[in-house]
């Protein structure tokens, strides 16, 4: 079981590594959106640090959205999706592996770069660990939910527009709790409540999303 999970993660990472330009696209987008804010709105210290939690997370949501498409697009084109269902291993396990690989490609770089973004937006030092935690817990939820949307729209032409409409409303709770956690941390208040909500969201998504993705892929294949 575990070896199958590792196999599919390795395969997807290798494929992603061979397509490096697609790899940097979402993270570049993320950095650009955040760096444009101080230029476009105001470089004022206090103003920015108030705006920062929202900015960091809205950018993360949009970057996740533009990166999602790649998770199943190629598999549909080259016939690998069918092979997922013929495998000896449960499709949900392999799908979970694909989502993990996708998170390693898109979520992890975000996680690495977010402390730097925090400095750019004058987020006070005491709030940076919380920000880091929200990204650590929140971005896997984005990948899991996004994958459901992609699985549903992969069989359609122009599915990209539909994907945004379908997935963004489901991203909103993540946005609310994550940015609220960071805001409270900036004010010096405990943010564990918001983090706990995010954490329970992640557990729920981890359990339910692979089932939903598997069912959606079956519908799209039909």
């Amino acid at each position: 079981m575990l070896s199958a999970l590792i196999t599919i993660i390795r395969r997807d990472l290798l494929v992603a590594f061979r397509r490096r330009s697609e790899l940097v696209n979402p993270i570049l987008f993320y950095v650009i959106v955040i760096t444009l804010f101080p230029l476009g709105v105001s470089p004022d210290h206090e103003f920015l640090s108030k705006l920062a939690p929202g900015v960091v997370w809205v950018a993360a949501l949009l970057a996740a959205l533009i990166s999602m498409e790649s998770i199943f697009r190629q598999d549909f084109d080259d016939g690998s999706v069918e092979q997922l269902f013929l495998s000896q291993h449960p499709p949900t396990l392999l799908i979970l592996g694909k989502v993990i690989a996708h998170w390693l490609i898109t979520g992890l770089p975000m996680l690495v770069i977010v402390p730097l973004m925090a400095l750019l937006l004058y987020i006070p030092e005491q709030a940076i660990p919380t920000l880091f935690l929200t990204v650590l817990i929140g971005t896997p939820i984005l990948s899991l939910i996004g994958a459901i949307g992609v699985a549903l729209t992969a069989g359609l032409r122009g599915g990209g527009v539909l994907l945004g409409l379908l997935v963004l409303p489901l991203y909103i709770p993540v946005l609310i709790f994550a940015s609220a956690a960071v805001s409270t941390a900036i004010e010096g208040l405990p943010s564990s409540g918001h983090l706990a909500m995010l954490g329970s969201g992640l557990i729920l998504a981890l359990i339910l999303a692979p089932l939903a993705i598997s069912a959606s892929l079956k519908i799209s294949m039909n």
Binding site: D78, G79, Q88
Partner: peptide, 28 residues
């Protein structure tokens, strides 16, 4: 079942050997 359709399930960004190694591990 082994199924080969019009889209044959071959990953274009992997080498021949990698394709087969991954494929056989996934079938178990």
């Amino acid at each position: 079942i082994s199924y080969i359709g019009h889209a044959s399930g071959v990953k274009l960004d992997l080498t021949v050997l990698e394709n087969l190694v991954f494929a056989q591990r996934l079938v178990g």
